[in-house]
Amino acid sequence: MNSGPADGALLTLSGVEVTINTLSGPVHPLQGVDLEVFPGETVGLVGESGCGKSMTLRSILRLMPPGGAITGGTVEWQDRSVLDLDTDELQTYRGSEVAMIYQNPVTALDPMLSVERQIVDAFKANREVLDGAPEEFAREALRDLEFGNPDAILKRYPHQLSGGMAQRVNIALALACGPSLILADEPTTGLDMTTQVRVLDLLEQQVHARNAALLFISHDLRAVARVARNIGIMYAGRVVEFGPRERILTEPSHPYARALLECVDLRTDERPRSIPGLVPRMTEVYPLCAFRERCVSRMAVCDEEPLPRHELGGRRRLLCHLGPGHD
């Protein structure tokens, strides 16, 4: 499975596996994730809840929940292995190379600390020397995120912020140490519609202004399609199909990707449909295709052989026995 880091990629995940030991036994949220992110690009990951999207982002930062560990595969940052970083290196990597924006903006902020303290601490986290007062940096950071009155916001506490404001503060925190990759874990899910658009625009604009790359995950294909140039479809702890947005949205190859697209067909006004069958339980390891129980194109080989991996050129990749160009 391991093909080594792709040339020029910022981040390369190959065959990443995560196991979490819980009281009721082990869970395997990631079962071999392959993914590359190149400098300055925007990549989106889509999938049902529980497919391992959030865990993929956490494995990139090596932030594991209690009992969780990366048990297989490699995570490469440029030419370094993230899994081999020591504590100090990891601390520098987090925040100044890769940073994350969380799903629930209010709970991602410490309720006991002022906005100013949190931004200043994030600023100081990975900088030995700041040329200027950290408060000035914090004010600038908020101004970048279109806060009209940064001084008033700096004095506030998280519970005094609306969801949209809190998420903009989170974006400022993530951008504080100038990372070249931003991970966004459903950053607009909890916000109302108009705020969603504004926050998403602002996020894109700030990320592009810094020439940073963005890895954006959502269960909402529309949101991902709006932002991402390349899209990966996740199912049961794997990226089953990856490719440029246009390909994925118009002619996806994986049966799951097609089913997902039909669910949220952007072209018709029909009621969204659901995919028959059950979401796979991640307490099991799936050496064969995990989708085959629900798949309309199931073949004999699906029950016998492990998933083949088709590299289709132009960064397209497919994990399916059907292969490309069946139709």
Partner: peptide, 15 residues
């Protein structure tokens, strides 16, 4: 277990 603790780690703050 709070989200803000994970977030604090993700900004590069030390243990």
């Amino acid at each position: 277990a709070s989200p803000f603790v994970e977030a604090a780690y993700s900004y590069g703050l030390g243990r």
